[in-house]
Design a protein around this nucleic acid. Structure first.
Ligand code: FES
Ligand code: FES
Lengths: 154, 154
DNA sequence: TTATTGTCTACCAATTAAATAGGAATTATG
DNA sequence: CATAATTCCTATTTAATTGGTAGACAATAA
């Protein structure tokens, strides 16, 4: 039930983008420095977010990333799903792409699947009603008290 | 956000025990055969459940395991926590044993921690209102349609 | 043309999960 | 008592996943 580091990086990077205006782009380098995320790793994270339609990019000199949708339109669930895959507690309990769990005989009559599908739905509901705008608001508040913009070199 | 195989084994083993009367014990061997779980692995699972106070055991010939509390008294949350540890999505967001996440500077002012603590609390609430009795009821229903007691030898 | 930036794929290292192994301790029973 | 059946405990091995690195390639602005 743990969030991967990749997802956490995604969340931090996105609040970074959410803080900028929609029109201006932010480079991987800038995000990596500000959030202290390994640059090449962040590269993969942002690529995944792009493929999920959450961010857009422009290449070449002066290029970078920006949100593709309004912060209030993208949810925590969207972000985590884009990085870590389905939120369901079991492979068979995914709403989008259910597959039989290894070791189970019959996915149809599996009672665990029934319970876990419901659990997954409730977890999704929780994560899908928290938006990136909420995260940005919180981040802004806590930064006022203790800014964590650093001078480290990546 | 995935349940470990160990937890799934625990759930299956416990419904097995829940199906028996509280007084009679069931051996690891019997559970392993019925649920098709590697015997030595199941041993560790049950040991953990015992240390968490969910089951009790009797040793020696004719020994085995039984529930220590009524099926309606133990929740999905209890079981998963006993096997996989805290339900919180991040180390810092655990209600019982919060520790700073590697990479974060200050656990106090971390905004991610705030959000994730709330998420964790909601997930816990979901899992803590489903009881072992519920699982057993479901298991009994689905087995009526398609019994998965096997003749395999472990 | 060159510097800067994102894209893509492969690879390596570290950690965790899953499974196996083997012996010690305990107990019922003949 | 001797034996077989059982849980208890720890260590080891193996497999899978995660976290991170590398480098060639493509696009773009200046
Ligand atoms: S098919 Fe997923 S638990 Fe049975
Ligand atoms: S301390 Fe856990 S995310 Fe910051």
């Amino acid at each position: 039930m743990r969030l991967s580091k990749k997802s956490v990086y995604a969340l931090r990077a996105l609040t970074c983008l959410g803080a900028s205006t929609a029109s201006e782009v932010v480079s991987i380098h800038a995000i990596a420095r500000q959030e202290r995320i390994p640059k090449k790793f962040l590269e993969q994270v942002l690529l995944a977010l792009k493929k999920a339609g959450i961010v857009q990019s422009s290449r070449g000199k002066g290029g970078g990333y920006a949100l593709r949708v309004a912060p209030a339109q993208v949810t925590l669930g969207d972000i985590i799903r884009a990085i870590d895959g389905p939120l369901a507690p079991l492979p068979c309990a995914s709403a989008v792409s259910p597959v039989k769990c290894p070791g189970c005989l019959d996915v149809e009559s599996c009672w665990l699947r029934g319970v876990m599908t419901e659990v997954g739905a409730e977890v999704s509901a929780v994560l899908d009603h928290i938006t990136l705008a909420d995260l940005c608001r919180r981040a802004a508040l806590s930064q006022r008290r203790s800014p964590h913009v650093l001078m480290y070199e990546i």
